[in-house]
Design a protein around this nucleic acid. Structure first.
Lengths: 305, 305
DNA sequence: TGCTTTTATTTGACTGAGTCAACTAAATTG
DNA sequence: CAATTTAGTTGACTCAGTCAAATAAAAGCA
């Protein structure tokens, strides 16, 4: 039986979010569309070829009411309806070009509305709010597929994110002191200050605007690429992002004509070491150190290309 | 400008939660109350003695409509309305015993509804969902935000935050390229790598777990303290945080026996310059530069202690 | 195979949540 | 003290959404 305090907390949030959504949804008054109109058009746009009965069930709408909305949309040439060859009672709904333009216009207005709200927030707050939304969605709707992660080049703020997330991670998980964060900042800072876009690169793994991982290739000279700052956030482990980031490094390094990739890691980073081993890296040296507080076992691995 | 992926993620959550709330709110059909009736009764119950005009504003309801709801509630003896002695136009609303019983009955049904939903979840998931809801509420509800920030020493991750937020800010507001973020990373990295806790300090302004500002004092040698990386997030401007951070620097520097504080800024940072001038700093040199892309006017200011 | 039942969608009729304007009484303003 | 504004009420209305009955197509059963 769920704790009453949790339940009341959830209800309080629901009252707040009902008002919040109510304010957002009032914006539909700036168009001729009602909120329900917009939901219908979005849903058809998102699942082109949906059937009307399924639509009514997904959106919890009265079929009679939906029928009138769809009729109006057909008259306004926003959608097309064709009979399902497999069942001539059913209708298959698709968005027309005009409907898609309208759908995108509504989308732009909605984006602008959220953007206006998020732009008033402090740096980091939109990400924190969206991460929390994703958490709620994953719990209350387990069948929803999370957006997939992408891997992209770095942009403004990403180096800071690398410093912050790795500094925090190593402090919390391994008790490393702030010298490690300082080193990461210097390494990453030098990377930006002396960046050679031809021979160096930084990859960021991201999902829905939230950074999840990173890795750098820097030019060590003598045909040696240095793989640095590989990291995957705890929330995104198990998705194969680490391997994908390492694969990007290898592909890039081969293409750029490097002879070898070298990297330094610590033996307690088991998942990372497994990735390196599977990718063909070999251990070339090992040394105990106390660079950041607790004693650790640093290792240098290399991959001949 | 907020990242479009964050915005789209938020909109997707809003569509999901609109449906989720729609399902919860359908349950009011098991009573004679509409959702709006329930919101009104809850609000009166929660703020006994509220006035009708304030109620209409808080709940964003048409006064005419609210009037009819309140009349019906008076007829059903759920609430009492008395004229405000201070303003006989205004009505003070209180819940009767019968109303409180109804309010509690609605509360029980609502609790049961959420409980039924939460009981289907795995252990720990309700806590995670509610924690996420509290995060969203804390970010999006201005009334939930404490007015004041605290100022504290740095800890793991803060230097990364400084690099990220200032790197992004200067790129977005002034078009500075990533060399600036690189420089911030190097400066801040060196600060951590060579940190002298006796003569150096970093202050972070924070509110509810979100960083809002920063400043460093580093030891420049020869009795000179260097004030670096003063920054206040745009969401927290106007609260006096910048001045507070500078005051901390001056107090600390005097206590540590420095003879002078020196700092470098750019002339377009008007608010920061105003703070320095009011604190007694004087402009000692000025130079045009293109260190980070667009031409800018760097300035060195000092304060004799 | 033919009849009955169910399902998908549409149309007619309707309810009631919520809006807008005009009203009255009380307070404020000049 | 008169004019204006504000708090709340009432009349008239709109339209989002519901319910029931209709038609056509499909499924089920004897």
């Amino acid at each position: 039986m769920t704790d009453i305090a949790l339940i009341e907390s959830a209800r309080e949030f629901n009252r707040f979010y009902t008002n919040f959504l109510g304010l957002l949804n009032k914006a539909y008054l700036d168009t001729s569309f009602t909120l329900t109109d917009a939901r219908v058009l979005f849903e058809i746009g998102a699942h082109n070829g949906v059937n009307a009965g399924a639509l009514a069930r997904d959106l919890q709408l009265d079929p009679a009411y939906l029928s009138r909305i769809l009729k109006r949309f057909r008259e306004e040439e926003l959608i097309e309806a064709t009979l399902d060859p497999a069942d001539q009672r059913s209708q298959i709904l698709t968005v027309t070009a005009k409907g898609r333009a309208q759908f995108e216009e509504l989308g732009s207005r909605s984006n602008a509305q959220i953007a206006a709200r998020f732009d008033t927030l402090a740096d980091g707050e939109p990400q924190a709010a969206v991460a929390a939304m994703q958490t709620i969605r994953a719990i209350l709707d387990p069948q929803a597929k999370p957006a997939s992660a992408i891997i992209r080049p770095h942009r403004a703020g990403d180096i800071g994110w690398i410093v912050q997330s790795q500094g925090r991670f190593y402090a919390e998980e391994y008790g490393w002191d702030l010298r490690f964060e300082g080193l990461v900042a210097e390494v990453a800072g030098k990377f930006l200050a002396n960046f050679d876009p031809e021979m160096e690169h930084c990859w960021i793994a991201e999902r829905s605007g939230i950074n999840l991982g990173s890795v750098l290739i820097t030019n060590g000279g003598d045909g040696i690429a240095k793989l640095r700052l590989l990291y995957v956030d705890k929330a995104a482990r198990g998705l194969g992002l680490g391997k994908q980031l390492v694969d990007e490094c290898i592909t890039f390094s081969r293409r750029k004509g490097y002879k070898q990739i070298s990297l330094w890691t610590n033996d307690f980073l088991h998942t990372a070491r497994a990735i390196y081993q599977k990718a063909g890296f070999r251990l070339v040296s090992e040394e105990r150190h106390r660079m950041f507080g607790p004693e650790a076992n640093g290792q240098t691995w290399v991959l001949d290309l």
